[in-house]
């Protein structure tokens, strides 16, 4: 795996130092009017984009920060900068 990820704290590092945290699905949906099905969809259903997607990663072997990156799933390369969230 040639993936490198840019941690907002530590900089560009080997992808093996990170834990994948799933696709970024936006903010948690409002609970009012939520059905079990819509909640299940939010938790379990993924877009599985063939292209650039926004996703969560944790630098588990480093600083422990959670952050999002944009990654091209076809080339397995990071394509943009990162946003600090923790």
């Amino acid at each position: 795996m040639a993936l490198t990820i840019t941690c907002p704290v530590c900089g560009k590092r080997n992808g093996y130092e990170f834990r994948y945290g799933g696709e970024d699905k936006g903010p948690r949906p409002v609970e009012e009017g939520m059905t079990p099905r819509s909640w299940c969809d939010y938790v379990h259903m993924n877009a599985c984009v063939a292209g650039v997607q926004k996703e969560w990663w944790c630098h588990k072997n480093g600083c422990g920060a959670w952050f999002t990156i944009h990654r091209n799933t076809l080339t397995n390369l990071e394509v943009e900068g990162v946003e600090v969230t923790s």
Binding site: H59, N61, G62, C63
Partner: peptide
């Protein structure tokens, strides 16, 4: 400071 694996240990 660097935070990362040293001999595979965080």
């Amino acid at each position: 400071l660097l935070q990362g694996p040293f001999s595979h240990v965080p």
